[in-house]
Design a binder for these strands. Structure first.
Length: 610
DNA sequence: GAAGGCCCGCTTTTT
DNA sequence: GCGGGCCTTC
């Protein structure tokens, strides 16, 4: 990629030294590049270390890639998400937080749901309330409980206090029971990772000082998506010592409200608490004229294309059905690929330059099918953290693996028992007679494995599965999933000097083994949320009917939630460097099987004149 | 206690 | 229109 010279404004931000700064950077203003250049420069000139926080692993690995590898960078710069930063601290400080062994992450929502159910069943008081509910309300009840627990953690509010404003006062006690069960499993959930380190810093001055002395500069990217817990972690870490904090973000791109984030942390709290200077970076270097004009109209902005003016394409196309929409996209892709070159696009038009975006991953069903049939290379930008195995053998493997590295993990032991339908998952006789005799070998293999021989054990399993699974699709699925696991192991070993089975599992849970840089080839299919901070020459934004984008729940709630859907549309638009094709189906197949007439997204109506 | 069948309810976004 | 959970039946 040819690098365009930094503009004066960008240059001045790169050259900032001491102090706190809030950089308000609109989409396409090159904020990630500015951040990276500054980190590079600082790491060359200063003594202390630099902490760079991003919101996705993908963004972290991209920054790491752009920083390049040098001894100085490796030693002096930590780039990662809040979760991975906190996890790395937790790994060495867990004893200070009351854990005898490093707690394991229950990252899966179904794990958390099961914990809630256990909590309800373990206390007659909760059980009575739950059993009294109408069947229809039961799901809502457990979902709300999980929401309650997350809110307590993310908003740093006591369960007691939050219960006062909740319809279900007993959630306060359910919260405690949930935490107790987690602890008895030697486990934590995602929110706990950050919460525990926040508490560590807030309550243990000595430890906090260690980290304060170790980091001279902190940079936070995408700060419009900070939640209270994350902001308070930053404050607790900084204390009175770290004053060099730079935040970069764009309130118009705030899309993670469901995670407790609000733009007030950057715009009000940070400015006040750190006496931050505001800097505005509002030139767009990324997008073509057409894309910028459409974005401006969408958000009522006045961003100008600066460095160069490329016309580009912005077009809204209504189609009859979802499958017609998929055909439209496919045909347009073929057309573009056949063109080979276009004046607006640098280099040859290939699949790597094309992305297909949508509000949620269900929207991709038809187009994925078509791409598969046509043999066109594509990949899912998976936000998915952890690996979810769908083959039975790999599920069994995963469960044995979990309980091996965390013997206190009752939850997954129970699940294993219920899959195998036996009482003692280590009893060879029972295993042999069970529905899945293969689990006997899986158990043995997992038992024997350690971090050094795991790759050999994986090979053994490959052979085992190959020899003993009869059903063809099940065999293929199992072997594919095992291969995926193997790739993650290689990735993990590359990233870690002192590997361990526990560390490997945590890395998987945090999604650290998924994102390996920009190696993926072909057309990128991604939700807008996961595409945050990324760009693509050619973007197809599909499924832009009202109720899908904006999501129907946000429509009924309105207010800030609807605003965030609009922000999300803006994020989607501005991912496109050159061409942006927007489409929506006039008829959509609903999850319950019948068709519903759809209208264009309310956000796009005003743009429909062309 | 297991297996088969029926019925119900169901779409979001990330770490 | 499909899959998960629950109930029936053997």
């Amino acid at each position: 990629m040819t690098k365009i010279k930094l503009s004066k404004k960008q240059e001045s931000i790169v050259n900032l030294n001491q102090g706190a700064y809030l950089v308000l950077a609109s989409a396409g203003s090159g904020k990630t590049r500015v951040l990276t250049e500054r980190i590079k420069r600082l790491s060359d000139t200063i003594d202390g270390r630099i902490l760079a926080i991003t919101f996705t692993n993908k963004a972290a690995s991209e920054i790491r890639e752009r920083l390049g590898v040098s001894e100085k960078i490796n030693k002096n710069v930590f780039v990662g998400t809040f979760h991975s930063f906190c996890q790395s601290i937790l790994q060495i400080r867990f004893k200070l937080l009351g854990y005898k062994k490093m707690p394991h992450i229950f990252e899966d929502d179904s794990d958390r749901l099961e914990l809630i159910k256990q909590a309800i069943n373990s206390v007659p008081f909760f059980k009575a309330i739950y059993d009294d509910l109408e069947p229809k309300k039961k799901n809502q009840y457990t979902y709300n409980a999980l929401q309650f627990i997350s809110t307590v953690k993310r908003d740093i509010i006591s369960a007691e206090e939050l219960a006062e404003s909740s319809e279900n006062e007993e959630y306060q006690y359910l919260f405690e029971t949930y935490q107790d069960i987690l602890k008895s499993n030697n486990a934590i959930d995602f929110d706990d990772i950050i919460r525990l380190i926040y508490e560590l810093f807030a309550n243990n001055e000595a430890v906090a000082n260690l980290y304060r002395k170790s980091y001279s500069f902190i940079c936070i990217d995408e700060c419009q998506d900070l939640n209270k817990l994350q902001y308070f972690l930053l404050k607790a870490l900084s204390g009175k010592t770290i004053k060099n904090v730079m935040m970069v973000g764009d309130p118009n791109q705030h899309i993670y409200g469901f995670n407790g984030s609000a733009t007030t942390y950057m715009q009000e709290d940070f400015v006040k608490d750190f006496q931050a200077h505001k800097i505005i970076l509002d030139e767009n270097y990324r997008c073509s004229k057409s894309v910028i004009e459409a974005s401006n109209e969408l958000m009522n902005l006045d961003v100008e294309a600066v460095n160069y003016v490329i016309d580009g394409i912005f077009k809204i196309t209504p189609v009859e059905t979802e499958s017609k929409e998929a055909e439209f996209v496919l045909n347009k892709i073929k057309e573009l690929i056949n063109l080979k070159t276009h004046d607006d696009i640098e280099g040859e038009i290939d699949y790597d330059k094309i992305s297909i975006l949508a509000r949620n991953k269900f929207v991709f069903r038809n187009i994925e099918q078509l791409l598969k049939e046509e043999g066109i290379p594509y990949y899912f930008k998976s936000g998915n953290v952890g690996i979810k195995f769908s083959s039975t053998s790999m599920k069994i493997f995963d469960l044995y693996f979990r309980i091996k590295i965390n013997p206190l993990d009752r939850l997954h032991l129970n699940r294993l028992e219920s899959i195998l339908k036996i009482k003692d998952v280590y009893n060879s006789n029972e295993l042999q007679d069970s529905k899945y005799p293969i689990s006997l070998s899986i158990n043995r293999t997992v038992n024997d494995c350690n971090i050094d021989n795991l790759h050999l054990k994986i090979e053994e399993l490959k052979k085992l599965f190959n020899d003993s699974i009869d059903q063809d699709d099940e065999k293929k699925l199992t072997l594919d999933e095992l291969e995926e696991f193997s790739i993650q192991l290689i990735q993990y070993k590359k990233q870690n000097l002192r590997p361990s089975l526990e560390g490997f599992k945590s890395a998987i849970s945090l999604g650290l083994t998924n994102h390996t840089g920009s190696k993926e080839k072909g057309i990128c299919l991604s939700t807008v949320h996961t595409m945050k901070g990324q760009e693509s020459e050619i973007v197809f934004l599909i499924g832009m009917d009202d109720g899908t984008f904006p999501d129907f729940r946000a429509v009924s709630k309105g207010g800030e939630e609807l605003q965030q859907e609009k922000n999300n549309t803006y994020v989607a638009f501005t991912r496109a460097k050159r061409f942006l094709y927007v489409s929506y189906p006039k008829k959509r197949l609903m999850p319950w099987g019948d068709y519903k007439w759809r209208t264009i997204s309310r956000f796009l109506k005003p743009l429909m004149k062309n």
